[in-house]
Each structure stands twice: as structure tokens, then as C-alpha cells.
Simulated scan of single mutants.
Amino acid sequence: MFKQVTVITLMMLLSACSITQNIEPAEISKGSELCIIENPDVREGFLKEYQSVLSSKAISYRVVSENSVPDSCEWTSTYVARWTWDLSLYMSYAEIKVFYKGSLDGEAKYDSTRGGANMSKFIDAEPKIRELVNQLMQIKSASLFFRKFG
């Protein structure tokens, strides 16, 4: 009986120390421009890394203020990130959403807030941001290409 209680307790503790990551890719049309709505509450390095990955994927973008999103922005993106202190400072939560004409098209979320004793929560933010953006941003090619070559 003691062994069973111990095993169940350990399993509950380990499941409470989980880190989750979910990505629903966005399919941005080739040649489209993404308007990133700047979040001044997030560390500047997050936006810089986001922009760097978009540039490497040849996705055109511009950063706009939340108060003045131009009507010409069909594709928009929001982001949120939090850093937490536990032995050292680390990114504990990140969320990037991509919208097309106001409707959610894709989302990437990393959450280690329930990481507890899980040491995997101590990550470098830049590689994680890169991973999230790379998996989130999918380029939709013209259907003509697929009809001819696909």
C-alpha cells in the first residue's frame, strides 16, 4: 500500500511540473505584409528576435502601435511574454497570435508557469522564440504552383 501511495504521489508531483507548448500554424500568403502590434510591456529582445526570424523567412513586416493599426494591415500579430525569477531569470511564458482580417489564423504558445521543479524551464529565450516563430509562420504559395507542379 505504501508503494502505491508513493508512486501515485510522485506521478502527481511530476505532472504538476509540466511545461507545455502548442502551435497552430498560420498560413500567410506569399508577398503579404505582417503588421506586428508592438507590446511595450514585453522585453525589447523578444520583438527583435521575432523580427529577425521573419526576416530570415523573407516575410515582410512592420511594427505598429496598438493605438494606430492601419486599415491596410490585413495580417496582424500580437505577442505576450513574461519572465520569472527562480534561481535565475527565465522566460516562463510566451504567446504569439497571427490574425487575418481580425480572425485568428495561427497561434504559438509556450508555458512553463507550472514548471515547478522541472529544470527544463530554464531556457534561453532567443532560441525558444525562434522555434515558436519558425513553426508558427507557414508561407502559403499560390495554388497555381500546386496545380502545375504539385
Rank of each mutant, 00 (worst) to 15 (best):
V42A: 12
G115R: 03
S88Y: 04
G150V: 01
A125D: 15
A108E: 05
L10N: 07
A81F: 01
A142F: 12
E95L: 12
A26K: 02
Y79G: 03
S68F: 12
L13K: 02
E95V: 02
S72F: 02
I96L: 12
R62Y: 03
S29M: 09
W83I: 00
M11S: 14
L54G: 03
M1W: 08
R130C: 01
L132S: 10
S143W: 13
S103H: 08
A81T: 02
K3T: 11
E66F: 08
R62E: 10
F149Y: 15
I123V: 15
S77P: 06
R147F: 12
S72V: 11
Y110M: 05
S56A: 14
K109I: 12
M91P: 09
S112Q: 05
S92F: 05
F122Y: 15
I8G: 00
N22W: 00
S120D: 15
V64Y: 03
T20W: 02
V69Q: 06
R82V: 00
L47F: 01
S68P: 02
F145W: 11
S92Y: 06
M119A: 13
G45V: 01
Q135S: 15
S103L: 10
D71N: 13
I8M: 05
V80C: 00
E66L: 10
V63Q: 06
M11D: 04
I36N: 09
S141P: 05
A81L: 00
K97M: 09
S112K: 08
P127K: 07
S32A: 14
K148P: 00
K3R: 13
R114T: 10
V42Q: 08
G116W: 11
K57Q: 15
F146P: 00
F145T: 06
I139M: 11
M119L: 13
E44F: 09
M12D: 00
S18E: 09
S56V: 00
S112D: 05
W85Q: 11
G102Q: 07
C17D: 02
I123K: 07
F2S: 10
F146N: 14
E49H: 06
I19E: 07
E44S: 14
Q4K: 13
A16S: 15
N22D: 10
T84F: 07
W83P: 00
K148H: 08
V64M: 03
A108L: 08
K140N: 14
G106L: 03
F46R: 04
F46A: 10
T76D: 11
S88M: 11
P25Y: 03
T20R: 14
S15A: 09
Y100M: 08
Q4V: 07
Q138H: 13
K3Y: 12
S60V: 02
E126V: 05
A125Y: 14
F99M: 14
I129C: 03
E66V: 09
I36W: 05
L132F: 13
Y61D: 01
K148S: 06
L13V: 13
S65N: 15
I28F: 00
D105M: 12
N134K: 12
I123P: 02
V69F: 07
I36F: 07
K30D: 11
F146A: 07
E27K: 13
L144S: 14
E107C: 03
G106D: 04
L14K: 02
E74H: 09
N118Y: 06
E33P: 01
G150Y: 08
A94K: 06
R114D: 11
W75V: 01
G115H: 04
A125I: 05
K30S: 12
N118F: 05
K48W: 01
S103I: 03
Q4H: 05
F2T: 10
